[in-house]
Design a protein around this nucleic acid. Structure first.
Lengths: 229, 229
DNA sequence: ACCTGAACACCGTTCAAGT
DNA sequence: ACCTGAACACCGTTCAAGT
């Protein structure tokens, strides 16, 4: 048992040859299973059966590692910039990103937070590609470049806002969900939080997919009107 | 010189008596000036001229300290749940929160991220108060409780989406802004990022306040229609 | 030139020892 | 009962020593 605490599937694994992709996907796996704090250079080195220092060949430092993870995740998002139906395309992308976020909830803080500390032009290219492609899609649909940017901002803002919303109310274990919610709500002072306490049942069955879709319909029709007008 | 690296205003300060508010506001000051990573128990202890261990009387651990900071910041947000003009109220709140975010940009990751790791009912009351109050506002305006929740989600999602958007493109030093933007954009491969590169000038003069207000107009009119229909 | 790992300068937090 | 600070079990990263 060479790797007793390992999360790797192959129990008798020999040392895998390292490259950036292996390092990043193992890092992502670690984040998925143990959270962001679980990803340390030392722990990742352990997972790959290497000296932690050897990781610095594939990422300049821990921050670069985090950037690499966001790139890796965003690369899973397919965008067809030449789709003639831009509304359908934006709608599908939104649903895909939602599912991606639900699959990697621990990465969402990274997606949302990393760009705050790096000027746009200096970000990892993988995180800028969706922006470029969506701008292309919109310009192809007839928006001026400047308008495309505004539309992108509205779309992106709405989309990430929704994802944050949904994840805030999402709890992994659906069994625990109701219990924890009740427990929590019960704790709130009745006099100060009457509404919130009364909303317990409604809060419990949040249909994120439907809510996202309704919002998209509203947003897209608004944006389409802007294009026509 | 008892406190050479201190950020306190009074150079000859004696030890301030500790209480939760003093601890939290000093922590906030530290986050504002040195970023989230700058806030460590040891550094905060230094700032307050106390043993770091003494802080544990006012926050159970570092996570609780971070929660306290978000509460402190959100407490600055005034909400009048009995305003008969709910649209005007939501509009003002949005602008106020935007300004709050610009005043404490380093706290925004906390606002956005902390709720992801705590079930709603177990969050610090200070972070739930805005939710309760806005629900009250909407119900007072005629929305059913369930509808009020949906409206809140749309509003909150849009608002935080906008703030993240704006902060992502915001750079502290306006002089450096153009330069850094140019530098960054110039770095991008022309073939892969033609649109983004061409948008440099447009990106440079993002008017966050106007953009927020336009979005609000769209959103609020949509929501008002929902109330009427 | 590349790789290794000891060492440094930090962390948050526990807990025994003091009052 | 409360407060203090030494000690523990970690961090990311530097850099000297090896190859």
């Amino acid at each position: 048992m060479a790797n007793p605490k390992g999360i790797s599937n192959s129990p008798s694994s020999r040392k895998v040859p390292l490259n950036r992709d292996v390092v990043l996907s193992t890092a992502l796996e670690l984040v998925d299973t143990e959270g962001l704090d679980g990803l340390t250079m030392r722990r990742l080195g352990q997972e790959l059966e290497r000296d932690p220092m050897s990781l610095y060949r594939y990422a300049a430092n821990r921050a670069a590692l985090l950037d690499g993870i966001t790139e890796l995740v965003l690369n899973e998002l397919a965008i067809f910039a030449d789709d003639p139906d831009w509304q359908a395309q934006l709608r599908r992308i939104a649903h895909d990103l939602r599912l991606l976020a639900l699959r990697h909830p621990n990465v969402v803080p990274l997606l949302v937070t990393r760009p705050l500390s790096t000027p746009l032009g200096l970000r990892p290219l993988g995180t800028l590609r969706p922006l470029e492609q969506i701008l292309g899609l919109l310009i192809g649909a007839g928006f001026s470049p400047a308008d495309a940017l505004h539309v992108y901002r509205a779309y992106y803002g709405f989309l990430y806002g929704h994802i944050l919303n949904e994840l805030q109310e999402y709890i992994v274990d659906p069994e625990e969900n109701v219990a924890l919610l009740r427990l929590g709500l019960h704790r709130l002072p009745v006099t100060e939080f009457p509404t919130l306490r009364a909303l317990g049942p409604v809060l419990a069955d949040y249909d994120g997919d439907a809510e996202l879709d309704q919002g998209l319909t509203l947003l897209l029709s608004g944006l389409a009107a802007q294009l026509a007008g």
